[in-house]
Design a protein around this nucleic acid. Structure first.
Lengths: 187, 187
DNA sequence: GACCATAGACAGACTTGTCAGTCTGTTATA
DNA sequence: TATAACAGACTGACAAGTCTGTCTATGGTC
């Protein structure tokens, strides 16, 4: 059992799920695109749902890693917080931008499907925590209550910018969200 | 051809699409739930896609009507703008709250499906216009540039509050979005 | 009141295709 | 030889949409 094949499956499935949706992507399409046999796919994953969780994991891992790398190149201070939106602007401009993979997936699963929902909620909570730690580093005069409060607000703005820029196929949501973030940091 | 049967189909399909998703709801389930024959359904709609557009229309019509009714009962001024979030808090507390039907549907369709996408974009643009007209009535010292700017910001906050309250199954996104709206109106 | 025509709706079979997952025998590589 | 992967058939279920014959309610005519 090789990690390479499994990773290849995850990457292929991720691209398909993200662009076309989870329910609209069948396992036959995944194996065809990945150029593998179905038995191979099912030797690595027990079910389509398990592939989905792996997809969510993969997207998040890549996202957090890329975001951190981008932010670490920005000047410390409020600019680094605002650079979250600069990062979003950058990925918005790539060809493969289809909005928020978590929201997309959440929309497709039934309300009582807990595995996928928990994965999504976990990722979002972790993002809020990441924003909070960014605030701690870059806005040292904030106390922990303020940090928690503002990290949630920035998270909401970021999420909105992602979803709405995809919906409208325009970047004004990113720009407006950034301005609101600025206002909050100045306040 | 009766409007009553068609409306009944739309309402049934709407409930199913909104809760379980468009792709996860089959036409067989709609006819079963609506207690009609399949031929009846296809005598009113040419395709499932057409039912989807009718669903989006229906949800939006109900939403705008309810929102306006709610807002008209609020005191004029900034409170009336902020009451958008009060309205959201109210529907969040109903049993049938499953987030934003437009975002949900957008997540399920393929990126090149234009009919549904255009309907969704149209609804969102209309919501921004509605918020702008609310600002005009209730914040008379705003000029048209400011009004346009702030309506977009409020729209983003509202959208985020809807999607994230559903995602997290908590109401803090609504409360935080309202606070940001307040900050923007005071600024 | 009886009859007829029409519109709307019904039940259910059908078509073609896809779905996720299972299984078997075969192949390639170290 | 063992492992990982392959090709492809299979299963039972479901998908959207088509079609046929039947039923019911209503309005009009005699």
């Amino acid at each position: 059992m090789t990690t390479t094949t499994k990773q290849h499956i995850i990457e292929t499935a991720s691209a398909l799920f993200y662009q076309n949706g989870y329910n609209s992507t069948g396992v036959n399409e995944i194996i065809s695109e990945a150029n593998i046999a179905k038995a191979t796919l099912y030797s690595h994953f027990r079910s389509k749902e398990e592939i989905c969780v792996a997809y969510l994991h993969h997207m998040n891992t890549t996202f957090i890693s890329d975001l951190k790398a981008y932010l670490s190149r920005q000047k410390q201070g409020p600019q680094r917080i605002l650079a979250i939106f600069g990062f979003l602007q950058k990925i918005y401009n790539t060809e493969g931008f289809f909005g928020c993979w978590c929201l997309k997936t959440l929309a497709e699963i039934s309300p009582d499907e807990q595995n996928i929902r928990q994965e999504i909620q976990g990722q979002k909570t972790a993002l809020i925590v990441l924003i909070a730690s960014l605030l701690k580093e870059n806005m040292p005069n904030y106390n922990s209550t303020i940090t928690k409060d503002i990290s949630r607000k920035i998270y909401l703005l970021y999420e909105s910018a992602v979803a709405e820029s995809y919906l409208h196929q325009k970047d004004w949501p990113i720009k407006e969200a950034k301005k609101m973030c600025q206002l909050i940091l100045e306040h």
